[in-house]
Simulated scan of single mutants.
Amino acid sequence: MTALDITSEDATLETAPTRYIEGRGIRFAYRRLGPSTGTPLVLLQHFSGNIDAWDPAVVNALAADRPVIAFNNAGVGRSSGQTPDNVAAMARDAVAFINALGFSEVDLLGFSLGGCIAQQIAAEHGRLVRKLILVGTAPKGGEEHLLAVLQEAFSQTDAPDPRLPLFFTKSSASQSSGLAFLKRTQVRKDDRDTDNGSAVTDPQAKALLTWCATPDPEHAMLRAIRQPTLVVSGSHDTMLPANNAYAMFKELSNAQLVLYPDSGHGALFQHNEIFVSHVRTFLNA
């Protein structure tokens, strides 16, 4: 059986074929998992990440009872086009992808930079987004330490992967969870996504830094979001600190807040089982 013989219902993140669809002149790469019916959950990825940077333990479990779509936005991985340097343009491209798939209503899970994009989409497209999950992210004008934390992580040459110091705390439990996460992301060997280097990371860094550097004293972006929202953060997120999560929780009109213990930016991967449980409960309510 080849990858293309696998149906969405049978597929996992490790086995699903990478498919392509065109929207706004961009050829988007994506993988679809889970049943064919139900409100699709669209995943919006973190800074520098592609489809294969998602944790199969999270994606596969979420796809057990709902359609889940992981995709590369413009210029990322195998998607064509140029990666924009601002969140608003990234949001327009993501909406073009959702429209190309023919979805009239979706749930969004935005992680890190993806959470900024998810906020923009939810604020501008109230009818398109049913529910919103914001993980390890920040509001407009929020606190970020991206460049300093990246520099420190890449200076740790003994780390097997920079995501280990970036996403996990220094505790033995968190580091062990981090190594398990890295192992899961490497299971897929064939048809893996591509890393497009600075052509992606430079504009994405500018987009994230600009988002956090742009004051929104009246919280207009958050107050435009009327959808039920689940806000999630790790207790020791060094990139986009947890006080961002609390700030969003306070200003959103209909939000729940979850903080995970002894965890960093990758709290959803470290605490994958309880994270999936919380997401399911939230989406099914």
Rank of each mutant, 00 (worst) to 15 (best):
Val68Asp: 06
Ala220Ile: 11
His271Tyr: 05
Ala173Gln: 13
Lys140Pro: 03
Glu124Gly: 14
Gly178Asp: 02
Lys170Thr: 13
Glu273Asp: 14
Lys250Met: 09
Ser253Ala: 09
Gln270Asn: 08
Ala3Thr: 10
Pro165Gln: 04
Ile274Leu: 13
Arg92Val: 15
Ser253Lys: 10
Asp202Ala: 15
His46Asp: 14
Arg92Ile: 14
Asn50Asp: 14
Leu44Ile: 07
Thr229Ile: 03
Ala96Pro: 05
Thr169Cys: 03
Arg78Met: 12
Gly178Ile: 01
Ala122Cys: 00
Ile117Gln: 08
Val187Leu: 10
Arg66Asp: 10
Phe71Asp: 05
Val42His: 05
Val276Phe: 01
Val42Met: 08
Thr15Leu: 03
Leu164Thr: 00
Leu146Pro: 02
Ala29Thr: 04
Leu13Gln: 00
Leu113Pro: 06
Pro215Thr: 02
Ser263Thr: 03
Gly141Val: 02
Phe168Thr: 01
Phe47His: 15
Lys140Met: 09
Ala100Gln: 11
Leu44Pro: 01
Leu41Glu: 06
Leu166Pro: 01
Gly141Ser: 02
Arg280Phe: 11
Val276Leu: 07
Val58Trp: 04
Pro160Glu: 07
Pro35Thr: 06
Leu147Val: 14
Pro217Phe: 08
Ser8Trp: 08
His125Asn: 07
Ala70Met: 13
Val95Glu: 10
Gly141Glu: 03
Gln227Ala: 03
Trp211Pro: 00
Gly110Cys: 09
Ala245Asn: 01
Gly141Pro: 00
Glu273Gly: 05
Val106Leu: 05
Thr229Asn: 00
Ala267Phe: 10
Gln175Leu: 15
Glu124Gln: 14
Ile21His: 04
Gly110Trp: 03
Ala138Lys: 00
Thr18Trp: 13
Pro261His: 05
Glu105Thr: 14
Gly77Lys: 06
Arg130Cys: 02
Thr15Asn: 07
Ser176Thr: 15
Arg27Leu: 07
Asp158Ile: 10
Asp195Leu: 08
Ser235Ala: 14
Pro67Leu: 08
Ala100Glu: 11
Ala159His: 07
Glu22Pro: 06
